[in-house]
Simulated scan of single mutants.
Amino acid sequence: MIYDQSEFDLRCEWGAQGIAQLASISDVIVIVDVLSFSTCVEIATNNGAIIFPYAMRDESVVDYAKSVQAELASHRQRWTTTGYSLSPVSVAEIPAGTRLVLPSPNGSFLSLNTGTIPTLAGCLRNCEAVAQFAHKYGNKIAVIPAGERWKQDNSLRPAFEDLIGAGAILSYLHGNLSPEAQIAVTAFEAFKNDLLGYLKKCSSGKELIAKGFEPDVELAAAFNVSNCVPLLVENAYVKQVF
């Protein structure tokens, strides 16, 4: 009980351990992976696509895509059967009805580890809509910033963009905030006037820009431009509108 923030309505904790601590006592979970899983899911589902998260980036995803009769996105690299990837730009024009498997060791992995708890994908683009939709399930809301992974040992790297994204969503929620949730809101408030500028300067943003994906950072920094709420239904994110 020390780590579950149970005395607060609005909770925030990082990654898989955050889900492990908060899921069972929360009415709904919001996964926040701004660069780029959640942004990619928001854009694709807003176009009417159905997105299947998959936690592994290995050959097993090929068989999984076949099993759900879906196309396969890449992690901006191998094993793709389409032009789609974790790059939000790649799904900007995805046709309605497209079934797409999206491998990701962060956002997808977390999405598939929430059990039976209603699960939403949130980002800066849809923060207000996600917050309003989350309250449909109750007042006990867990916001999970995904973070990134250090390449040296695969340990969690708390990521600026996910803290800001979590804070943006929490700022629209109603209820008493845990200290962990409050610090996310405070961080968002401190940087909200130049989200694009700071996303370009943070470590994850600089990494994407160096690899030629600056337009992805620009899409991810768009604030409150969407009323699309991706809801996980039978292991796939589908569009809800609030």
Rank of each mutant, 00 (worst) to 15 (best):
N47L: 13
F109C: 00
E71M: 15
S104G: 04
N113D: 07
L100Y: 09
L112S: 00
T80P: 00
A121W: 12
S74F: 12
P103F: 05
L110G: 00
I50L: 15
C123D: 04
T82I: 08
W79Q: 09
S90T: 01
P88E: 12
T114F: 03
E71G: 12
S104Y: 06
L110R: 07
A96R: 15
P95V: 03
S87W: 12
D63F: 09
V89F: 09
M56K: 13
C40N: 15
I43K: 11
L72V: 11
E59W: 09
P95N: 09
V89N: 00
T80Q: 10
T80L: 05
A49E: 09
S90M: 05
S104W: 08
I117E: 01
E59I: 11
G83V: 04
E42N: 14
A121K: 11
R76M: 14
Q69C: 01
R99K: 13
V91P: 03
S108C: 04
T80H: 04
S87P: 06
A96T: 06
T114V: 01
E59L: 13
Q77C: 09
L102R: 07
N46S: 11
Y84I: 01
V62S: 02
N46M: 07
G122N: 07
P105H: 12
V62P: 00
F52W: 13
G107D: 04
G48N: 13
E93Q: 12
S111K: 08
K66L: 13
A96E: 05
V34N: 03
K66I: 00
N47F: 09
L35Q: 14
I94E: 01
Y64A: 03
E71P: 00
N47T: 06
